[in-house]
């Protein structure tokens, strides 16, 4: 078994299992903690508040977009670029069709991949520069923040280097880093990709009963 076969075979399946089981374990574990029933008389619907909160927090409201424009712009550049590359990049779609599902899927043209990847890179680098330069960010950042940023950066970098698919070692490196990223995910702040929905939802439901969603 070659190294590429190992990282795309056994290690990939282990990493995917850790990712899925770990994330599921975490979500179920959090939800099982439960919340005490609220005995106060609601003014409005908690469910409506929870739904509203999901959309409300995509952009800071109350005049804040102008104060947080750097983070807002960089954050959306990174996330939109990453999701485009991940979901519509031809190599990813082919890999998924071979290893996960066999559904027809739209792919981006090569130039689209490159543009989306560059936008994601720019966003991630901007976020990281802020993390190491802004006094608040320096104070609050810990190892997990830096490991998550660097691991994601290296996954993206190795992916771009392997885009030509001409050097096997580059593809193997990319897959190794992807496997590491998947294993790291449930143990880290990368889990925000899942838990953000619960966080927004709980706040929306809590205050939705009061007739407002902050």
């Amino acid at each position: 078994m070659s190294f590429l076969e190992f990282v795309e075979g056994p290690l990939w399946y282990v990493a995917a299992a850790v990712f899925l089981i770990g994330a599921l374990w975490k979500v179920v574990g959090i939800l099982r903690l439960g919340r005490k029933a609220d005995l106060s008389i609601p003014r409005a619907s908690a469910t409506a508040g929870a739904v509203r909160s999901q959309f409300l927090h995509f952009v800071p409201h109350g005049g804040f977009p102008f104060r947080t424009i750097y983070h807002l712009t960089a954050g959306y550049m990174f996330h939109i670029g990453l999701f485009l590359v991940l979901l519509f990049g031809a190599p990813h779609v082919i890999f998924a069709q071979n290893n996960i599902y066999a559904l027809p899927w739209v792919t981006m043209p090569y130039w689209g991949f490159v543009v989306a990847a560059q936008v994601a890179f720019a966003g991630l680098i901007l976020l990281w520069v802020r993390r190491i330069s802004d006094p608040v960010m320096i104070k609050i950042s810990d190892k997990d923040d830096h490991i998550g940023s660097w691991l994601t950066f290296l996954v993206m970098l190795s992916g771009c280097m392997a885009l030509q698919e001409s050097v096997v070692a580059l593809r193997a490196t990319h897959m190794l880093l992807v496997d590491m990223w998947l294993i790291y995910f449930p143990f880290s702040r990368l889990m925000h990709a899942v838990t953000f929905m619960f966080s927004r939802g709980y706040t929306g439901a809590f205050f939705g009963r009061r007739g407002i969603v902050p």
């Binding site: 919340r35 804040f64 950042s141 702040r189 838990t195 706040t203 809590f206």
Partner: peptide, 16 residues
């Protein structure tokens, strides 16, 4: 509880 755990797990230290 579940809400506090969600909050503490979802925070990405963005500092906003």
């Amino acid at each position: 509880d579940a809400s506090a755990a969600s909050y503490l797990d979802a925070c990405v230290h963005c500092g906003q």
